[in-house]
Design a protein around this nucleic acid. Structure first.
Lengths: 195, 195
DNA sequence: ACACGAATAGACAGACCTGTCTGTTTGACC
DNA sequence: GGTCAAACAGACAGGTCTGTCTATTCGTGT
């Protein structure tokens, strides 16, 4: 029951926004009664938080499954292929976390707290991957890639998937300039580009 | 009168979102009557569109005034200083256009049409600036900087202004790797990094 | 057979939303 | 002074929203 409600909420919240979708719509989609929802989640804000939590869990699982078969030194670049595949999926509507942050003004809202955690997680992954790529200035480059990641997703909402590919290109250029990047590019003449 | 309404709408819509703020709040803030609003704007969606239009106009003016005294070849990089200043302003709440796009699902909404125009304008400016920086692959690099621009703004909402500075660093690295960048960096040994 | 937890349908309260309409007041121009 | 457009206050309709509550039904384990 809880899962059915959450699944319905996920579909509607992601497609139209948490604010645009009322409880009644979720109940109709899940074919559930109002009391079920309120006994499981307490209030709408908690349902939103559960929705965000579920999105985070599935994103982490998806990313980990994607990078698992990829050599660590290539992950920092290849994660942008994951983004491309994501923004090309037919029902792509932007990053659910970015949207919730935009809709909920209060940073202490439970859903926003979860979103902040997820950002820390993602940034830590980037640092890992960039270090594995053999880059000297790993934290700086990792953060740059994180910003590029955010930009790839938000820009694809308006401009289409090509922006994710543009971001991939930029990530490759950054990694190469920083002395890391793909394994086959390791022999580049610029190992320590100063700065 | 129209200006007073628009000014009040701007404050409230930007601070809390167009969906979270009702007509009555705008009227109270502007100390205006309901009939005034509806005679000037027709409906709320048009007020939202007017709000977006005003934000676009002021952003363009601000950017143009900022880059005017800067040598064209430096503008592609220095525009990131403009972003830093913006995200550091105390009432920064993200990009108003990104937020409206996130709130309004329908891409044909008048406000979203305006937002799409503004993106074209911004991208054209980046192409100009990157060309002036003497970069070979100007459109590609310009688009990369546009994505970085988007990422700088959205990432600063959650992570604070440091992300805008990180984006500036990445922009500098990208421009340098592409053979352009600041005038004093022109003598860099890597003119054609081959991709 | 019975008890009990869980789901159901749906009325209801109270608030808020957009948009319309009526009637009044103000102020500028002729 | 007269006229007319614009702004005013605010009631009102009709809808939506969250959240509570009552009363009923279903299924399972004992």
């Amino acid at each position: 029951m809880r899962d059915r409600l959450l699944e319905a909420a996920d579909r509607l919240f992601y497609a139209e926004g948490t604010r645009a979708v009322g409880i009644d719509r979720v109940l109709a989609e899940a074919e559930a009664a109002k009391a079920s929802l309120y006994s499981h989640f307490g209030c709408k804000d908690e349902l939103v938080a559960a929705y965000v939590q579920q999105r985070i869990a599935s994103a982490r699982a998806s990313i980990e499954a994607f990078v698992a078969p990829i050599p660590p030194c290539e992950r920092a670049l290849r994660i942008f292929d994951w983004i491309v595949a994501w923004v090309e999926s037919p029902d792509f509507m932007g990053c659910p976390l970015q949207r919730v942050v935009g809709e909920v003004a209060d940073a202490r809202h439970p859903a926003r707290v979860l979103a902040a955690d997820q950002r820390d997680w993602l940034r830590a992954r980037f640092v890992e991957w960039v270090k594995a790529a053999g880059v000297a200035n790993a934290p700086q480059v990792a953060t740059a890639l994180l910003v590029l990641f955010d930009g790839a997703v938000i820009a694809s909402v308006q401009d289409g998937p090509r922006r994710a590919r543009d971001a991939r290109w930029a990530a490759g250029a950054l990694l190469q300039a920083a002395g890391g990047g793909r394994a086959e590019a390791r022999t580049s003449k610029l190992r320590k580009p100063g700065r």
